[in-house]
Amino acid sequence: MIQSTFFYTTAIILFLIGLYGVLTKRNVIKTIITLTIMETAVNLFLVTIGYVKNGTAPIFTSTISDVHKFVDPLPQALVLTSIVIGLGTTALMLSLAIRLYKKYKTLNYLEMDGEDEK
């Protein structure tokens, strides 16, 4: 049986993988990917906080109205917000990557130099 401890562990391991990637990778696109991994990990963590074993989605329908089986809806609302925020940040990061590539013709962060020092 899958326990929520399993989800917590997965979330934290994913978070740490993302952190390791951010610390070591110097490629713009790879950095963006690792940051996305971190975001996903945090979302997983948040959803797990509201997890109820054998629970149902927190929506009343004509057949379901047992509130005791509902999973916690608040973390889901938080995740909804954080997904949208993550989308915005990723879009912005990718457009910055496009501009950086056009300017320096490389995606390696360390090789970007030669800026006019005005």
Binding site: Q3, S4, T5, G50, Y51, V52, K53, D72, L74
Partner: peptide, 12 residues
């Protein structure tokens, strides 16, 4: 939360 959160301790 371990599998079954005590929702009565949360605002939700």
């Amino acid at each position: 939360n371990k599998d079954n959160p005590d929702l009565s301790k949360r605002v939700s």
